[in-house]
């Protein structure tokens, strides 16, 4: 009886998404447990932040201020470039996508299935998070939302063996797909020929194909390129840019679907929705 019920549930969940709301309700039961496990870990981190000496705080502060000034300078130039880009695109009569909105979510330190690279964050459907939203951190692409539960959501990392992300070489615009390897510091690019124009050190950015990830975010850096003379494709490995195992704050991204109408002069900068 229970076996039949399990098999029924298994097949329903495999082929449809009818059990999504059920999963949501059950997840409410286990959220306290997840936060309970996370609590000692996050409080140790908070404590170590609290115990930082004045000197190290001061050093950190000045370093961050310098970085902030630096970034501000780059942004100034960036907005000029953005305007120029829009003008040029208007000349080519192609449209331009608006910036994205982001929501800051914090990692809940629990481990999900052991053969998957998935993490849990503390923002869920209640904040409007939904499936297939891209997730970034300060350095690059982290992954995408696989399950949006009421209070939490599960995020699959780009290094999961079942994950693939369409990328582009920043230097020359070469398109390909990066697959997860199952190791946190490695992505594989299995679909490039032996004579592909790609060298170690090349930056891979999202290409925007596939419609999940917005275009132009850094994904990984190529670390090795091995030619296989007897096979059609080369072995290329890349290292993810995002700090997949250390960053606690992740950014969940909302894409802005509306295009800027051609010839329009008004342009809003990227909006940041604070949580």
């Amino acid at each position: 009886m229970a076996v039949l019920l399990s098999i029924l549930v298994l097949s329903i969940d495999q082929y449809t998404d009818k059990l999504k709301s059920f999963r949501g309700y059950v997840s409410l039961l286990i959220v306290p447990l997840q936060y309970g496990v996370d609590l000692p870990i996050s409080s140790v981190q908070n404590l170590s932040d609290f115990l930082l000496s004045y000197q190290s705080l001061h050093d950190k502060y000045t370093a961050l201020q310098a970085e902030q000034a630096n970034n501000q300078l780059k942004l100034l130039k960036f907005s000029a470039l953005e305007q120029e880009n829009i003008r040029l695109r208007t000349l080519f009569e192609s449209s331009f996508k608006l910036g994205e909105q982001v929501l800051v979510a914090e990692l809940v330190s629990v481990n999900l299935a052991r053969y998957e690279h998935q993490v849990l964050v503390n923002k869920g459907e209640r904040f409007g998070v939904h499936e297939k939203q891209p997730v970034l951190d300060a350095l690059g692409v982290v992954g995408q939302v696989t399950n949006a539960l009421p209070l939490t959501s599960e995020i699959i990392l780009i290094t999961d063996p079942n994950h693939a992300i369409p990328v582009q070489v920043n230097r020359n615009g070469l398109h390909t797909i990066a697959l997860g390897s199952g190791q946190l510091n490695k992505l594989i690019l299995p679909f490039l020929p032996n004579n592909a124009d790609i060298v170690p050190g090349d930056l891979l950015i999202t290409s925007g194909l596939g419609g999940v990830f917005p275009q132009g975010y850094p994904v990984a850096e190529v670390v090795s390129f091995t030619v296989q003379p007897d096979k059609p494709f080369a072995i290329i490995e890349a290292k993810p840019k995002a700090a997949l195992n250390t960053s606690r704050e992740l950014l969940i991204v909302w894409k802005n679907q509306s295009m800027i109408p051609l010839g329009s002069k008004s342009m809003t900068a990227t909006d940041y929705a604070e949580d």
């Binding site: 229970a2 399990s6 098999i7 969940d13 059950v26 447990l33 999900l112």
Partner: peptide
């Protein structure tokens, strides 16, 4: 069976595998 379902939700897996 109930505990199995809880575990499936907890680990974000296909529902019913631990239950079975």
């Amino acid at each position: 069976w109930c505990v199995g379902i809880l575990i499936d939700v907890l680990s974000g897996q296909l529902l019913g595998q631990h239950a079975l």
